[in-house]
Design a protein around this nucleic acid. Sequence first.
DNA 1: CGTTAACTTGAATTTTGTCAATGCCTGTGG
DNA 2: CCACAGGCATTGACAAAATTCAAGTTAACG
Lengths: 231, 231
Amino acid sequence: MPAPTLQALFSNQPVEKFDCGAALFWEGDDATHVFEVLEGVLRIFRILGDGRRVITGFIYPGDLVGVSLKKRYLYTAEAITPTKVRRFTRMRFETEINESPELRPQLFARLCDEMAAAQDQMVLLARKNAEERVASFLLMLARRLCQDAALCPEIELPMTRLDMADYLGLTIETVSRTMTKLFNRKIIAPSGRHAIIIRNMKELATIAGDDDEDFRPTIHANVHQAVWPHA
Amino acid sequence: MPAPTLQALFSNQPVEKFDCGAALFWEGDDATHVFEVLEGVLRIFRILGDGRRVITGFIYPGDLVGVSLKKRYLYTAEAITPTKVRRFTRMRFETEINESPELRPQLFARLCDEMAAAQDQMVLLARKNAEERVASFLLMLARRLCQDAALCPEIELPMTRLDMADYLGLTIETVSRTMTKLFNRKIIAPSGRHAIIIRNMKELATIAGDDDEDFRPTIHANVHQAVWPHA
DNA sequence: CGTTAACTTGAATTTTGTCAATGCCTGTGG
DNA sequence: CCACAGGCATTGACAAAATTCAAGTTAACG
């Protein structure tokens, strides 16, 4: 018996295909299934009452969708490219996880990664300007798409500019202008509309602010001394 | 033997006190312990290289801190008010969780709640304006501090305006101005500097956009048809 | 009761969003 | 294989929202 992994768990399930724009599930649907993505890219998003859309993540092959949830899905998952997935019922998935001491920590680790990504995104949305957001985004893709980013500077952007905007909390125009600026500064180069080449990874990282996001213990200590008066 | 709960798990650990401004741990520290908060309020935050601060959450009694993590803490946790906590070593905590089929789903549920909160926050930061952000924040506190919000309209705000600003992705001035507007419109009333009274919960919820954040399936279907040209 | 930090308010500036027009891929059909 | 249509992306001019800078005001604590 091979070492049980999350991938292996799904490997006997039939493969399903989704076309561009097709939804795996909708926000508010009963959370009945968990999916593993084999091929393709998905966007997961929520929509406010007046139509504003927020993309909370992009899903790539190897990722799971629909795990970290409640009774109902908290977001819609939609294919950006032709996509292949395998699925489990939620109940069966939970049983399998619960019964396997090997699988549990794997799932836990994934949730922690997801949480870490969510926090990075909160930092981006709360305090980074347009240029920093776009740079951070491109850098994240670069890191996700290949381990040694220096080796494969070409990055595919399967999502539209509108997707990027709704992920970065910007408008499509601001994303476009910011990309143009990065092109002009030779930090990236266009490679068709849906790919770029990173020409200056170091500079991109500097702009993104991913360089030295480090804490500086001596400083914080007395800066933010909040006082609780009604003790 | 009583039904095992996460609270009970900590109940034999000694109680530790932290003063205002004291840190339980720093971003980047080895993640050695998990904490349960008994009393007080904490802020958890990260700092960018140039000093910009992002508060990713406020922690109240009953919450756990330091769980959803990697080798190192991803954020600093600092007491906003005099705080009492109990702690476990991470290792011992993991063992206990792993050995208890009752505790595991409880922890899992908490992580899912945390993930859901993180997504709400991403929506807030990506697409809501200042007024919506502040209203959402006050509403969240109201819901957290008492079940039936109508019954206890007074809400304590132990954090400073700067804390609120760094949580909401705004400046301290914008938070102040927005609060003033809500005061003038009689939606909330000040109760000292560190508490408010909600005078019109319904209106506050409308402003926050928490009313009808519902999906409208018929609309999305063909709106965001991204195309993948390089198939 | 005075000192100091926190908060509020105002005016000017900057960034990003909005609206509108143009340009360019991409996929389709001749 | 090429021409064309339609969506997507880019660009520009203007408007709006939030930030920045600069005083003032208030409230907590010694």
